[in-house]
């Protein structure tokens, strides 16, 4: 029973520790410091970019390094005006051709995975992300090696639809899918 009481007391102490800090002057000073630093780290990085703001970047840099990151510009300043897609054309050594698309996951459960694939897709299609292209081709080459038949070449294709704003009379003037081959890997 004695051990049980000790354990219970330990839990009580744990439950009360946040509030108990306020019962001591040192605790109150600590809480004030934590509240001030964290509140600053939440608000300040969101301020509009300016020379003044940039001068103080170092002040919230520690919070950013720790992992408390602020970036809440969603669909801003406008939602993007393109639907995007990336696919790959795989030419196997036997001459046959296959296409690879992003995993088609179900919208109920799979949706909690597919957003990551779409984020990857947003990056890999960019010209300033060329460092991702060869690893993508090499990964596809491994995926499509079957029964000793290896891909001879892999072409990454950028696809997109241009969306126009809804017209004032309710018409949607979207085009069809466009395609551009942005990288070809050939087995050495």
């Amino acid at each position: 029973m004695g051990a049980m009481h000790d354990d219970d007391a330990d839990v009580d102490q744990h439950l009360d520790q946040h509030s108990a800090l306020l019962t001591h002057p040192i605790g109150r000073a600590l809480v004030a410091a934590v509240v001030a630093v964290v509140a600053f780290s939440i608000v300040a990085p969101n301020m509009p970019s300016s020379t003044v703001r940039n001068r103080f970047d170092a002040l919230w840099s520690p919070a950013r390094h720790v992992g408390l990151v602020q970036d809440w510009g969603v669909f801003s300043p406008n939602p993007r005006s393109q639907s995007i897609d990336v696919r790959a054309r795989i030419q196997l050594a036997d001459g046959s051709i296959e296409f690879w698309d992003l995993p088609d996951l179900d919208p109920v459960i799979g949706a909690y995975r597919s957003y990551r694939w779409h984020k990857w897709q947003e990056r890999v299609r960019l010209d300033n992300r060329q460092e991702l292209w060869e690893p993508t081709a090499l990964w596809l080459a491994r995926e499509y090696t079957r029964d000793g038949v290896e891909p001879a070449s892999i072409t990454l294709i950028r696809r997109w639809i241009d969306h126009q704003p809804l017209t004032s009379d309710g018409r949607v003037l979207d085009g069809g899918w466009n395609e551009f081959e942005f990288y070809t890997w050939v087995r050495p």
């Binding site: 809440w72 510009g73 801003s76 939602p79 005006s81 969306h163 704003p165």
Partner: peptide, 26 residues
């Protein structure tokens, strides 16, 4: 606040942004 603040583009002010968002196939 900052999600609102950052939505300063024309599609948000002219009231068509949601139509565009809902047409983004991906």
């Amino acid at each position: 606040v900052f999600a609102f603040w950052s939505k300063s583009g024309e599609l948000w002010t002219n009231g068509t942004a949601v139509s565009t968002v809902l047409r983004l196939d991906d």
